[in-house]
Design a protein around this nucleic acid. Structure first.
Lengths: 342, 342
DNA sequence: CTGTTAGCGCGTTCAG
DNA sequence: CTGAACGCGCTAACAG
């Protein structure tokens, strides 16, 4: 059975569809009585205005698009949670797309969304992305866009990130304090500001400790997980002196654990690992496993708030609205307290 | 700058909009030459057909709705991943909604989606849900719906689940073999088949071992996490003999870890814990922590496949299409192999 | 092969 | 306060 239409509702009430439409939209220019009759029958018949007809007329999709590299990862899952919450408060719908770090896919999605399916976009760019012309289209069309976490380096748009430089610094410092002298860095992508900034923090801490930064100890992450494990494994074999690893994203941290396991290097006795990560199970990590945790849920919420401010007020998002939240170094919880804020 | 419309494209080409529409939809009844001209200009101008206008006319939203209790949880994240992949292959879009186990929210979402925003629905019901009248609307409207994981007990629709009875049995058996004699059960909800079936598996294993099933050792999970921790804590304090815990969902497993920690009971020395869970970090669990892992990604894929079969062939989903996949008992990976398939 | 017409279901004129 | 007419952008039916 097809859903009932405005017209049918109007006929059943002996009213014109215009009046019914007005009543349902709570217009001032309709009598309280008719309003009551309309609403009563609408409720009874489970009437829902057809969303696409309405969108077409109003030129509002009531939908935002969320584009993520992946979701099988606690950071982005928590972010979605925050985004969905804010969207719901604004009576908006959330379309989710995954790029799997594939640039061409990102371009496709953006182009499609720019065609009217979404009123705004939240984007965490694919690590493969190094061209950004597809984003110009969004600017031209005036579609508000907020970047979060994985941001175009040097972008002129609003962004929500964490204190990436500081996070990299804190993580490295933690390893140094634990006695590591040869710390490898697992880089996500040089196109991304998170890649650059976290690495700068790492270099900063290394220099401060009077240690030399060695490009041989940097592994550039790929899209394929097995490949990453192999690369890290190779690093560990060629550089047995490595006693610490800093992973700039969760997936690389997991690859590092795996690689260590494969070559029989114990964590944390032989190698200490710190990674950016939002594992729900962070509290359960083995002794010595430590994470830099981002406030993913809040980041999702804040990014969405900025976006909706632009959508509802019909103003562009300004770079000045950008936010930088604080990351936290989480050491395995044992009998004593867990969170160290240096 | 507003996106260009079909009409404008037609004018620029001195063609009628009908012809242009046909050309873009690769109709047989249009000359190869015109087709070429149209496609060339369309590409140049970045033309995208307005999705809602098209949907309105074709009565197809090209969108599916995915309704989940939560997403900050590896199981549902992985499921979304699988769902999105199949949707993309079908050129469909994915709307994500979270109920946070709130029944009224589930009803709202379903009613709205039934109004034409989605061609089909994938649903994992809220644990609070015990009335299912809102689902009748979907049946009336002929909107294909596939349930996964959290299924309406005794539903007549297609479902994708894991071998919940067997999973509960395996988990409990594992605890028994490890020497546990007083095993508590953390129940998610009696409205859900996963709650019932997993508990049956638990009871089955207990009986087989000649142990008595005690309702005092069953904790009924609530929506609030802190409350769950408190309840489990109370259990542990009132029943110091408890030496094993079986958690029927991930969130309860995490609450159990926390509660044990709070009352100073060590895992696994004092209490062994097994939970249904899809933690990416499962490989990193502490010794003695064991999980029952569901093939979440595959479940998402399979559920979506069933749904799209119905959508594209315009046939209803049949209960006979239901699938039951196999869960896996994953013991902490150490130097030896990890996966035990009994 | 192409153009004309009509209508998907709404919301918004403009009259009365 | 209410109704008739129009159009959002697209596709399907009917002509030619």
């Amino acid at each position: 059975m097809k859903p009932i239409s405005l017209k049918q509702l109007a006929q059943a009430l002996n009213l014109s569809s215009a009046t019914v439409s007005r009543a349902l939209n709570d217009s001032h220019e309709v009598s309280a009585e008719t309003k009551g009759r309309v609403l009563a029958l609408a409720r009874e018949l489970n009437y829902e205005p057809h969303p696409f007809a309405s969108s077409l007329r109003r030129q509002k999709s009531k939908t935002i698009g969320v584009i993520l590299p992946e979701v099988a990862n606690n950071f982005f899952s928590l972010a979605i949670d925050g985004i969905e919450e804010i969207a719901r408060l604004n009576n908006y719908h959330v379309l989710v797309y995954l790029t799997h770090d594939d640039h061409s896919r990102e371009v496709d999605i953006v182009q499609h969304l720019a065609g009217g399916r979404a009123d705004g976009i939240l984007l965490s760019v694919a690590s493969e992305t190094n061209q950004f012309t597809h984003l110009d289209l969004l600017a031209e069309r005036g579609i508000p866009t907020v970047f979060f976490d994985r941001v175009r380096a040097g972008s002129a748009a609003a962004t929500v990130t964490t204190d990436d430089h500081r996070g990299g610094y804190k993580a490295t410092q933690h390893l140094l304090q634990a006695g590591c002298r040869h710390i490898a860095y697992l880089l996500v992508s040089n196109n991304l500001s998170i890649g650059q900034k976290r690495m700068q923090g790492y270099q900063h801490a290394m220099q401060e400790a009077g240690l030399e930064y060695s490009p041989h100890l940097v592994v550039q992450g790929q899209r394929d997980k097995a490949e990453n494990v192999a690369l890290i494994r190779q690093l560990l074999e060629e550089h047995p002196e490595v006693d610490g690893i800093f992973a700039s994203v969760e997936s690389l941290a997991l690859s590092a654990y795996e690689a260590c396991h494969e070559v029989g290097r114990r964590i944390p006795e032989d190698v200490k690992v710190v990674g950016f990560s939002n594992m729900a199970a962070a509290a359960l990590l083995e002794p010595g496993l430590t994470t830099i945790t981002q406030p993913a849920y809040e980041m999702g919420r804040e990014a969405a708030k900025i976006l909706f401010k632009a959508i509802t007020k019909n103003k562009p998002v300004l770079p000045a609205q950008s936010l930088e939240l604080e990351s936290e170094l989480v050491v395995r919880r044992s009998t004593e307290a867990a969170r160290l804020k240096p």
